[in-house]
Design a protein around this nucleic acid. Structure first.
Lengths: 337, 337
DNA sequence: TTGAAAGCGCTACCAA
DNA sequence: TTGGTAGCGCTTTCAA
């Protein structure tokens, strides 16, 4: 059986209040003598305060919920690592919840975190937020920060990258080296990041007076197989496309598989670019030109921000954190001029 | 403010005991009439039982702790996914803890899970188990299953693959096609899987009367940079090595980077094999010959087993589950005969 | 079928 | 500096 605060109190012949003071490091209210005596006993009997009981009283825990969409997507592990490491530094632990791209699961997890009185939530909303989720977020008083997404709810902070700008720059680069017929494989259209990236794509074409051709656009889902499949669709439409922008590296890699299968050489006959700069983008041949997202740093920033809010250390001017993605030019794009 | 069981009881003019019966689906002890009336109220007031208070009484939770070593290693996300999906099916949630290859962190997390009364733990012990950890595992009465590792503690079940056998078969294959000078990049030598794999390597060489040459062996750490680095070391030793067996795909990929840098062609001038069959092993060129581990299935199996133990549904003959890895032959190995 | 009340292990307030 | 104790929200036992 596990030893409780009452056991220790009895053994030491003091009140539970005194033991409580010691285990909570309340500097005053306990004589040095009692303190050391208790500390020894606690050590000896291997007493660990019951976190559940504690949570019931304080309504606080040292747990942060991290809700992401798909841990199998290599973008997320680095982000999770960043969150975990920063949180650990400050004494917090992480519950990692995988929403699996399902709104139902997401709602369940949000409920779960709520019921368990986690100290705060780091939330990666993949889908456009439905009313149900919005309701939960606004109504539960748990501190929350958005990561890799942005939302306009007053008082809610976000950590994200400039997706629109990133695509804008990426496509500008493609245009500057002579590409005009630019294919585009999106993520799921109800995803925040996809929408931003799509906006960037449309905008840069307009700014360069390139007409938008919907035959060049197809909806993906951020997985390798879908990249493979959608590349096939694009190819079958027999456009004059010279490059395909994929909304993440995974799809770019899938697309390259299709290209290889059809014996179309990258980049000589078709250029490909991705987004994320995951490890694989360096491994694939030709090496993938892509956009680097600082996912680890985003994770750390989000954790830092959240814990500051939790501990009321958040300064007035602690606004949302915006990262700038960086163009990573490698070998999968051909210069046309 | 959140509504509690007492609130509902007051509103409905019944005792909290009755409400408790309803929310716990106790079939008897509540009239159909009262039940429906309460259910409506619960719905209306959006009452969610406080999981923390519940946990304090029952000493149970619907949380399973999953302790792994490094979520950034692509082997783990699939495993985590398996655990998560199976657990969810049965109404459990996962706390994912990343031990980060550090014994200290591991001990912390084990403590943490313990204090929080999780229902059970799925534990991937990367390092050989130290006394401290062993002590925790044996002394805390929380159900626990080992995953991707094996330990001989009576009553503790494991889900793992036959690592030794896998390497034995892999190297047998290499020998059968003419390789004799077989390099070996291990994982960290205090890791369980490394030890098993190393045993397999030694055994197969002995069985084939091939002398063991320690110049062909070097210790790695399961990361890409280390694969790169150790390949360099191996090369500098100027052995007659024709193939290098890497204890995971990540190191194999790092090794291939080194080879590319030194202009050594794979597989013509040097063959490489990996272990795990992660996505990247299909992406890298030449495609990597490797050993496939059913990590997703292992995750599911472990979760299933653990929950059975938790719910006392574990049958007598529910022994450990052993998976057989499968050789995946691709293009990174040259036939020498 | 229903209710009263004890108690889970802890914190925090008030009194000594 | 120390102790007594109420109470967190729930489950569970016993009695009505």
């Amino acid at each position: 059986m596990k030893v409780t605060i009452t056991d220790i109190a009895k053994i030491a012949n003091v009140s539970v209040a005194t033991v409580s003071r010691v285990i909570n490091n309340k500097s005053k209210g306990v004589s040095e003598q009692t303190r050391t005596r208790l500390l020894k006993l606690i050590e000896e009997y291997n007493f660990e305060p019951n976190a559940v009981a504690r949570g019931l009283v304080t309504k606080k825990s040292k747990i942060i919920g991290l809700l992401i969409q798909d841990i199998a997507n290599p973008f997320y592990p680095r982000l999770a690592k960043g969150v975990e490491e920063e949180a650990n530094l400050r004494g917090y632990n992480i519950i990692l919840c995988d929403g699996n791209n399902s709104e139902e699961k997401e709602v369940n997890y949000l409920d779960f975190l709520n019921k368990h009185y986690v100290a705060g939530i780091i939330y990666n909303n993949f889908n456009n937020i439905g009313d149900k989720i919005l309701n939960i977020i606004v109504n539960n008083s748990i501190p929350l920060v958005f990561i890799d997404s942005k939302i306009d709810i007053p008082g809610i902070r976000c950590v994200y990258v400039e997706n629109e700008k990133a695509i804008y720059e990426l496509v500008s680069y493609l245009i500057s080296i002579g590409h005009r017929k630019i294919g585009f494989i999106t993520g799921p259209m109800d995803s925040y990041s996809t929408n931003e990236r799509f906006k960037g794509y449309i905008k840069v074409l307009e700014d360069n007076q390139i007409p938008i051709d919907y035959d060049l656009i197809v909806e993906g889902d951020y997985t390798i197989p879908k990249g493979y499949e959608t590349m096939g669709i694009l190819l079958d439409r027999k456009t004059e496309m010279t490059v395909v922008v994929c909304c993440n590296d995974l799809m770019a890699i899938g697309a390259m598989e299709m290209l290889e299968e059809r014996n179309i050489k990258v980049p000589d006959e078709m250029s490909i670019v991705g987004f994320d700069n995951i490890d694989m983008s360096r491994i694939v041949r030709p090496k993938l030109t892509t956009v680097s997202q600082p996912s680890y740093e985003m994770g750390r920033a989000a954790a830092k921000m959240l814990i500051n809010i939790i501990e009321n250390k958040s300064k007035k001017n602690d606004a949302s954190v915006v990262f700038l993605p960086e163009l990573v030019i490698r070998d999968s794009v051909k210069k046309l001029n």
